[in-house]
Design a protein around this nucleic acid. Structure first.
Lengths: 190, 190, 190, 190
DNA sequence: TCCTAAGCGAGACGGTACGTCTTGTCTTCCA
DNA sequence: TGGAAGACAAGACGTACCGTCTCGCTTAGGA
């Protein structure tokens, strides 16, 4: 018996494509990976690839979405509802540690800066939520800029951390992030 | 008179190549620009291109080096010898305003994040110089990370500014940068 | 119905490539024909060309092989088993008349002397077969030279004929070939 | 002293170009030799080449013309005025032996069949002169064809001889040529 | 004796073709 | 019926030559 339902085959195909992509990014960086490479490594037909994804960037982003939804589960799963910016960032560092391999492939130079763009978008949204009630238009620095700054800083720090092979534990990294950003925020809120 | 020495021809060729590249990046982003496009726009032979530059990235970086050397002239030309981090950043914003067109092409998404990498490298070096004497190993946050953070933040802010069509004057941007980063640095030095 | 199997597509592609090559050779001579020309005329992708043939010479020779295998069918189809040199040459002239267009492209200057080389090789082999039993080592002229001479003469005559637009019928040409070559052979065999 | 007149410089340049071409043809065959190769080997500037010759074929033919004028001196120098076809052919074989190196480069495959075409033209003209008085229109084989045949045969034999490293002396080769062609001519003249 | 014109090397240049590589589309075949 | 297989048109890649075009250097033969 042991038949395989169509859906399961589809899931399987997507999984091997993602896995192949991660492998190849780690080997030579996202920019150098071609569709050719991926389908060969994944042992998948050319047309099969294109029936699932528009192009290689689409595959990449789909992988990132998966990762992000795991991150969101991690987030709601373990912290109190109304978390602050630095609760959020802690989860980011912890999550990155849990999935070191994947992060190494996606973050920074290897990931072709593609992930940074998307992660920035999602992170900004979350951070805006945590800050928007404490902020009013009279502040000297627009909320938009502050959020942009915090997201960028977190990603920059994360990238540094991953590319240096996680030399400190997540909690230490988060403490650093806090030391680097909190004083400015506090003084503005004062 | 008006003869053209070999050297001048070479300079001319490089100039039209740079100009063509900038134009094309502004039109469709660095990642979409091909060598084909550039030589066609610049009216330059294919082999001529390759006799000057290894590939399109090489052309891009050569353009960036030009820009950076202008920046360095700007820097030494107008500030006192021992400038601080926020004197430096002010010059960055001013320089970007002077060359809005070029910066628009090179910075951020349009520039394919290529410039960010190199600018980060150069900025970090300059910033490390201004900070290294005030820092000692006992600090909670390593100098390396602080410098990485400052350079990343400045570039992120610069990118935001340019991509939003310079909504504030350079001085205002630098004040914002200072408000976002100085408190943390001060409290660490205290 | 009217489905097209992969194999049929391949055959079709090769056919249009051959046809395009013949056309172009007739227009400007083999030496001037580029791969670019051929694929443009045949409406075929560049890489498709190279997936079928190593280079333009390969395409040319593949066309020649086709022609030669037709010739061999013609040969065994209509003559008695043990044909002599001048039975063979008659078939050559007849075959050239049947495929005037192709021969015009391949033979002589237009064909870049490429076909001559290969045709010489094949013709020599056939002629050696018809002569080798009647020859012995004591002859004043080595068999190798005689065969070389006969093949060269036949090709030269054929070239002249085709380049002068077939002014005589094949039988007349063969009679001429016989008058030019047979007396010497006879006198040697005597 | 030893000044060099302009004319002598020109002669010298042409000579080194010819020499370089011959060397290169012997090394890799005419078809593979580029202008680039020649000027590099001859240590001559690119524009200098083009001020002397239209292209590489022009250089080749100029070399052939030199050789041919040597041949004509050889011809008138040593034979009686009204020579027959086989006196002519003997001189051809002798001349080839005297200039083995050059012939090896020009004749046959190495020479890209270019020389054959021109030599055929010149030889035909000479042979037509020796035969035209003995021929009348009533002959079964047109003079034009006979001449074409004789010239082609001689060149084919010469090519064979040179490409096989001159295994026989010139006189023997000429005797063979005579045996292969004379009987037919005699029987036609009878 | 100067100087002017020519021969030359060097090599930048716009162009064209090469043979390779990758893309995204499409069709057939098999399980 | 979905996926593997792979042919295909399209077009960019980096390389190799082409033939044209300056440019300076050298060196002669006439002023």
């Amino acid at each position: 018996m042991e038949k395989e339902s169509p859906d399961r085959r589809i899931q399987r195909t997507r999984k091997v494509l993602h896995a192949a992509l991660i492998e190849l990014i780690l080997e030579k960086g996202f920019d150098k990976v071609t569709v050719q490479d991926v389908i060969q490594r994944a042992n998948v037909g050319r047309s099969t690839f294109y029936s699932h994804y528009k192009d290689i960037e689409d595959l990449f982003l789909s992988g990132f979405e998966n990762l992000w939804s795991l991150f969101e589960q991690h987030l709601t799963g373990q912290s109190v509802e109304k978390a602050g910016v630095w609760d959020l960032s802690l989860v980011v560092f912890q999550h990155a540690q849990s999935y070191t391999g994947v992060y190494r492939a996606l973050v920074g130079k290897q990931g072709g800066n593609l992930m940074s763009t998307h992660m920035h978008k999602y992170l900004s949204a979350l951070m805006r939520e945590t800050l928007k009630d404490q902020w009013d238009a009279s502040k000297q620095v627009p909320l938009e800029i502050v959020v942009h700054h915090l997201a960028s800083s977190l990603i920059a720090l994360l990238t540094w951390w991953v590319e240096h092979d996680l030399p400190y534990p997540p909690e230490r990294m988060n403490a650093i992030f806090q030391q680097l950003t909190q004083p400015a925020i506090e003084s503005m809120l004062a």
